[in-house]
Design a protein around this nucleic acid. Structure first.
Length: 515
RNA sequence: GGCCCGUUGGUCAAGCGGUUAAGACGCCUCCCUUUCACGGAGGAAUCACGAGUUCGAUUCUCGUACGGGUCACCA
């Protein structure tokens, strides 16, 4: 038998921001596909018209693009298995739903939402707080199994809205081999008769995922662990539709959990704990509220994706920093963890810091140009390019380049006075005044020359150079940070250096003067 | 509550019957540096519990506890 080409899919519902867990699912799909020379498909699961959010689909595409995880087939790119939006495939599902009814694997149900609520309320007991529409219940409800033929015909003829439900067998065991969990099994008596086709003619996830995975020739289906309880429905559907011999291999991925407390990570946790949960900024078109994204916070996509990959998978070596190519090479779905992983923002930042340190100036430059421009700091490209190597090790986020680098482009707006004022005195003031005139005379403006001049003048004043370096730094930079101070002076130039010293020295003395 | 899944330091985790139980993040100490980082050295901290199986269990089995998921005409 010829092994079919690997085909995997990511099938989000376009209802809002792309959650970090979603990206990890994309990533594992992508890595698996590329590892096996296969294809990665993006399918939009927009069968719930009431939850449709304008712009969400484009946003998902933008996120994937930023992450560098582009699908081989998608609604916009097309492919041989389209359309890739489920809303555009409506008729296909109806046909298969009908087939299931005709074959006795599914049935019509006419129960209204109110009737269903009433049933759940009526049969609710402390021992069974969530009654199901199952074998024991369906005889009590209004459906093609319980109704006499004439009643059924009448309802159908009258055009009464109905749904199609799967008829769960009473006493079967459904088992399958999950690629991350191994053997998993369910008893059909514990599973309810899930709705397959809704009253509006749209399929539910359960029908659509099976039909589309079949039609799109998906070979491996990865999804979050939250889908595990409905897996038996899908398995049975594959069987009932007659496609069991090429059902994809399943892998249910562990969840990403809240860093504190319990449960899976949600958007609210980000707001509450101060870190993003979405990939890129997402503005809800209804509320106009914007949720922060990793991109805008200053993450490099390489780091974001790397960090996500390691949340639940590792290749067994000690290497943690990996490119997408290295991950593709090393990836093995069997090595994905079974247990959920708590998200740790500190570790996420560490990944970003490592990636910034390892990135070339060329890689960083375009992003940084944009960030500086967004902060209204005029940063000439050549100058920006030249300072990147010396400050990148101090930057955890791309946005840190603003605080770590803006002094190269403009004089500090404020000084860390606590660091300098307590030890500021008239001698030091005179030193800087004198040195400033020395600087004016300098003809070669290099780091070494400036430092030499500084030391010489300090010697003249019998002040230890070390006592003067911090004040100088505060004058030029504004705070206790940044590369070696004489290097900074060399870069910002003679005129600016002298101007900053002059201005700051005066201010220090003024601020210190008794009132 | 039923069903299903899981459980190695605070977090991510290696381990797949015999190890001094790796490594990373974070935290602490020190070195380097008259700034901040980077870098280097070191430290505290772990196999949920109880029975088996076995000469020997972190590793296998079963219980218990705890955690998670799910129980919509949402995905």
């Amino acid at each position: 038998m010829i092994t079919p080409k690997v085909r995997v899919r990511f099938a989000p519902s376009p209802t809002g921001g792309l959650h970090l867990g979603g990206v990890r699912t994309v990533l594992y799909n992508y890595l698996f596909a590329k590892k096996h020379g296969g294809e990665f498909i993006l399918r939009i699961e927009d069968t719930d018209q009431s939850r449709f959010v304008p712009g969400a689909e484009q946003y998902i595409m933008d996120c994937l693009q930023w992450c560098g995880l582009m699908p081989d087939e998608s609604p916009v790119k097309g492919g041989a298995f389209g359309p890739y939006r489920q809303s555009e495939r409506k008729e296909i599902y109806r046909r298969y739903a009908q087939q299931l009814v005709d074959d006795g694997y599914a049935y019509y149900a006419f129960d209204t939402t109110e009737e269903l609520e009433w049933m759940r309320e009526k049969y609710k007991t402390p021992a069974n707080p969530a009654p199901q529409y199952d074998a024991s219940m369906r005889t009590k409800m209004r459906n093609s199994l319980s109704l006499p033929d004439e009643d059924l015909k009448a309802l159908l003829d009258a055009g009464t809205p109905y749904v199609i439900r799967i008829l769960m067998p009473v006493d079967e065991t459904v088992a399958f081999e999950d690629m991350v969990r191994g053997q998993v099994q369910f008893h059909t008596s514990t599973v309810d008769d899930k709705v397959l086709l809704k009253a509006d003619g749209m399929p539910t996830y359960h029908l659509a995922v099976v039909v589309d995975d079949h039609l799109m020739q998906i070979t491996h289906a990865f999804r979050g662990e939250e889908w595990l309880p409905s897996a038996p429905v899908h398995l049975l559907l594959w069987k009932y539709l007659g496609w069991a011999d090429h059902m994809p291999q399943w892998a249910h991925l562990p969840l990403i959990l809240k860093p504190d407390g319990h449960g899976k990570l949600s958007k609210r946790d980000g707001d509450r704990l101060g870190f993003p949960v979405f990939t890129m900024n997402w503005t809800d078109p209804k509320t106009e509220e914007t949720a922060k994204g990793f991109k805008e916070l200053g993450f490099l996509p390489e780091a974001f994706v790397n960090m996500l990959a390691m949340l639940g998978w590792n290749d067994g070596t000690e290497q943690e920093i990996m490119t997408i190519e290295e991950m593709t090479e090393a990836f093995a779905i069997e090595r994905v963890h079974k247990g959920g992983a708590r998200f740790d923002f500190e570790k996420a930042k560490w990944f970003n810091h490592e990636w910034i340190k390892r990135s070339t100036t060329k890689r960083l430059l375009p992003d940084l140009k944009q960030i500086f421009s967004e902060h209204d700091i005029e940063a000439p490209e050549a100058l920006l390019e030249s300072i990147i190597p010396s400050i990148k090790e101090r930057c955890t986020l791309l946005t840190d380049f603003i605080t770590q680098g803006s002094f190269y482009f403009k004089a500090p707006a404020a000084y860390d006075t606590a660091a300098v004022l307590p030890k500021w005195n008239s001698d030091k003031k005179r030193f800087f005044d004198t040195w400033n005139t020395e600087l004016e005379k300098m003809e070669t403006w290099t780091t070494e020359a400036i430092e030499q001049s500084f030391k010489d003048t300090a010697a003249d004043f019998s002040i230890k150079p070390g006592e003067l370096q911090l004040p100088l730094r505060i004058m030029l930079v504004g705070g206790k940070f940044g590369p070696p101070v004489f290097e900074i002076a060399a870069i910002i130039g003679q005129t600016d250096t002298r101007a900053r010293i002059n201005k700051a020295a005066t201010e220090f003395t003024d601020m210190q003067a008794p009132v």
